[in-house]
Computed example of a mutant assay.
Amino acid sequence: MATDPHSALGRYLAKLPYVLGHQLSDDQVVAGLFDPHGTAIAHATERWDPIGGPGRFTGRFAHALQDVGPIDHAVVVGYGPDGGAWACDLATELREVFDARSTVLHVQDGSWRVLDNLTETWGPSTALPAQPPDIALLGTPEPAASRDDLVASVKPLPGPIFADLDHAKATHLASLSPATCADLARSALDQLARGRVDNVPHQQSLAHLVNTSIIVRDAVLAHAIQGTQHRQRVDALVRTFRAAPSSLRPVLATTAAAAAFLTGWHPPQVEGLLRHTDPTDRLTHLVQLGHDRGANPAPARRTILESADNQLQEAEAAWTTNQTAKRTTQPTDARTSTQHPAEPPSTDTIGI
Rank of each mutant, 00 (worst) to 15 (best):
S125R: 15
S177Q: 08
G52A: 08
L118Q: 13
Y12D: 15
E120N: 13
T347C: 04
A256T: 00
E306L: 04
D4T: 07
L312A: 02
G272P: 00
L221P: 08
F162V: 09
V238A: 03
H202P: 00
T263L: 07
R113K: 13
P299L: 05
C181A: 11
R233D: 09
V200H: 05
I161Y: 02
V200M: 03
R239W: 12
Q313P: 03
A31I: 13
Q313W: 05
T332Q: 14
R301F: 02
W122Y: 12
I161W: 06
Q339W: 09
T349G: 04
G78T: 02
L128A: 02
R56D: 13
T320A: 15
P160T: 06
L16S: 14
R147W: 13
L90H: 04
G123S: 12
A193C: 10
D35M: 02
D281T: 08
D82K: 14
Q269W: 02
A342N: 08
L138S: 10
A182K: 01
P81C: 09
V30H: 00
T263W: 03
D82R: 14
L286H: 11
T320I: 11
Q339A: 13
P345E: 10
W112P: 01
V234N: 11
A130G: 15
E142R: 11
L184F: 10
F61P: 02
A258C: 09
L20N: 01
A170V: 08
T121G: 15
R293D: 10
D27L: 07
D89L: 10
T180A: 13
V210L: 08
D333C: 11
R56C: 03
T212L: 03
L90T: 09
A74G: 08
Q232M: 07
P160H: 09
V75E: 00
D82N: 13
R95I: 01
G227V: 08
R242Y: 07
V30G: 00
A163M: 10
Q288T: 14
G78H: 03
L283Y: 06
G83S: 04
